[in-house]
Structure formats: C-alpha cells, structure tokens
Design a protein around this nucleic acid. Structure first.
Lengths: 221, 221
DNA sequence: TTTTTGATTACGGTTTCCCGTAAGGTTGAT
DNA sequence: ATCAACCTTACGGGAAACCGTAATCAAAAA
C-alpha cells in the first residue's frame, strides 16, 4: 500500500475523516500530510521532493472556500496542474461534492487524474476502493457518479461567447460588432439569430432566460 | 453534557467525523444514533420517544442526495418540522454546506433551531462550540457565516412565481391567465410588466436572462 | 474557368416585449 | 359625500426579437 499520501481538503470535518480512512488502510498520516489550503499542498509536495521522499498520492477537493488571505492557487484543478508540473508521476484522487460525470470525465481527460470520488452516501467505502485501485495502477471511476443525460447540445467557444454576452445584458443587435471585436465568426446578425435559435431548438427551450439558466446549471459558462 | 444525540447526514465521510467529534465530547454514539436518510431520522426519534428515552439533540444536514428509493422527507428543513411536531423540545443543530447568513437566519426565525454551523475550514471546532452552547440553552450563530451584502431586492412569492414562469419559457402575455390560476394578484399584464421592470431596475440588470441567472445564482427559485 | 454547394449575410414581415400615459378602482382622511 | 393618494388595468407607439426568404460570398468540384 501507499506509504506517503497528502490530503488537501479545506473542511476540517472531512479532512479528519480522510485521515481516519487512510489510517484504516494502514497508511500513516503525520501532521505534515494534511493541509487546508492549496498553496500549502504545493509547498508540501515541493518540500517532499527536495527531501527525496516524494508523495505517491494526493487526495484533493475541487473547490476551496475563499479566504481573506488570498491564495495563489484557488482550486483543486489549479493545484493538480501545479503539482503535476513539478512531479509528473504523482497520483491524483479527486474527492469532491461535484457529482456530474461530465466534469469528472474532463478531469480524467485533461488532467489525467487517477480517480474521481464524489462526496455522497457511501463515499468512505468508495474512497477506499479508489485508493486500492490507484495502488494497482488502475484508474477508478466511481459508480456513484450521476450519469446525467448527455447534453443535447455541445457548446462551442462561439456559443459560450454569445451566451456570455446575453448574460451581460447585451442585445442581439449589438452582438455583430462585439463578436467582430473578439474575432469570432460568423458575426452577421442573422447568423447569430440562427445559432441561438438552433441551440434553443435542440435544448427544447423557448427563451433566452432558459438558455442562460441551462448554461449556469450545467456550468457551461 | 448531552447523553443522547442523533446524527442525520447522508455523506458517510462527514457522518463518521461527526461521530468522532461527539465522542471527543464524551457523548456516546451507538449504531442507532446515526442515519443517512431523513426518514430514518424521524423513525429513530419516534422510537426513542416511545421508549421514554428521547433524543436531546439532533445534528442534521440541510440537503440530502436523492435516492432511487423515494424518501418521504426530502431535506433537513422538512425533517426539523416533522421532528418538532412530535417532540417540540428537541434541540436542533444544522450542519450544512450552506453558508449564507440569510438562510441561517430564516432557520432560526421560522424553525427556531438552536445552532447553525456551516461546513467550512474550522467546522469541527465550530461544531463543538455549538454543541456546548446548546447544552447551556444558548443559541449558537457560527462566526463563519458569510455575511453577503443583502440582496438589493427582496423577492416575494409573487416575484418568484413570475420568474418561475419566465424560466418555464412562458411569454409575458400568457402570464395574466397563469397568475389568475395561481390566485396571485395583481394579474394585469401591465402590472406584471411593471413588476419585472422594477426588479430589473433595482438589481441593475437589463434583460430577463440576467434576472433568471441572478435568481438561480442566489437560489431564490 | 465555370459550376456547384454550403455557409454567411441582408432584408422584410410578424410577434413579443418595453415603456409611457391615461383610465378605472379602492382605501382612508377630511 | 368628497377628495386625495395609491394601486391596478387598458391601450398604443416604438424597439427588439423572431423567422422565413433571397442575395451574396467562398471554397471545392467539374
């Protein structure tokens, strides 16, 4: 089993439980091996590397509450990138309240994480299974991920730009110029109208409010 | 200190940690004293009452993940109401990811809860202080609550109904009839237009999309 | 080069929304 | 009863959005 694991989790209650869970797996956790801030996590990883005793695995949350003392690294995503930059072979287990398969998949694809476990009813058991899988060099996709129906519409950068402008309160008539400024094509008013209409049709909704609501609910923008 | 405390929390990791925290306070937690579903919580409270050994305190989450096996009680709010209906003197500590003061205050006011502790960096210490306060018959307002700037606009049920209809894709022209069905006044088209316009003015936004986005972001609907 | 095809843009008619004004109602004070 | 103040509703002009069609353009095929 792993010898050296780092926990990055801001909620004290959860952090405590993670330590207990690792102890159950006979993984020793010292006072140095758990942190409440992303910046601290990166510092520990660097230190361990310099001491030739690098971490094998990091268990990290995705979202961290903001603090008055501004942190350089704001969330788990950025932490993973920064950590991998200095230690490419570090295993990563993401433990998050997020339970949408789309988000998890993007983490596997973009950051090549090793496991994703959502905080949910049986997360403790889930977590232990994930750690054992990673130790065997296998990726672990939690069965508790909510496999939402795949979005009927895939939002391009172009689409996101349009919705963002709508969200800012711009009128459609203003959009051609604004899109030209952003060097986005096509920028004709008709094309924009058609595109918006197409999105609304495929999503089966009828007004811009619903469109914005959908994008927010699915964290598209 | 309390002798008999019930934990209602669906996340296993958090549930475990809560048990540990109570043990630290010399409160005994048996296998009967923690549950993962609201319905189970109410059953336990009833049973304890019938056995003349009622719970003194319940620690409950607010939001519970939905399960295929439909539960009668869906969230912490409903659980607290149901519990107080059969045992009015039960102390209630809400432990939730929610950290907006407005929500917490409404719980104190409407459900007369005894403490609100947000899941956050120092939630374990926070929790213990809360329990000690409750034991001394004092209400506990966590210092970790994020005192967000009060919303410029207070949404009435009427306002929420309008925004909900917008979200459903209804046109303004359909609203008079729909509001009459809901017995909401005023139902004149002009009044609805004026109300929407007033809300948008006070929120300093310019279209319905932003309005819906605002309501979603602030969990108004 | 010419033709074809598909995408983009321009334009016009219709609907919906926005916003101001005015009319109708209700309530409470004089 | 009268009046004033306020709320609600009715209406209309103008702006924006919606939607179909036609014209334009660009790139690939003949």
């Amino acid at each position: 089993m792993f010898k050296k694991v780092l926990i990055a989790e801001d909620h004290e209650i959860v952090n405590l439980s993670l330590r207990n869970a690792l102890t159950d797996l006979n993984i020793m956790i010292t006072n140095q091996d758990y942190v409440f801030y992303c910046d601290d996590a990166l510092t520990r990883i660097e230190k361990a590397l310099n001491e030739d005793n690098p971490y094998e695995l990091i268990i990290t949350d995705l979202s961290f509450d903001e603090e008055p003392s501004q942190q350089k690294i704001a969330d788990g995503r950025a932490l993973i990138k920064a950590a991998r930059a200095i230690q490419p072979d570090l295993k990563v287990l993401v433990f998050s309240i997020e339970n949408r398969a789309l988000i998890a998949n993007s983490l596997f694809k973009e950051l090549n994480i090793d496991a994703f476990v959502p905080k949910a009813r049986h997360d403790a058991k889930d977590l232990k299974m994930a750690i054992e899988s990673i130790y065997k060099n296998k990726k672990y996709h939690s069965p508790n991920l909510r496999q939402k129906h795949v979005n009927a519409h895939i939002f391009t950068e172009y689409d996101k730009a349009i919705v963002s402008l709508l969200l800012e309160g711009k009128t459609q008539k203003e959009m051609p110029d604004l899109l030209k400024q952003k060097k986005l094509e096509p920028s004709g008013l008709s094309s924009i109208e058609k595109r918006i209409n197409h999105i609304k049709t495929t999503l089966n909704i009828s007004n811009n409010g619903q469109l914005i609501a959908h994008c927010i609910a699915n964290k598209i923008i």
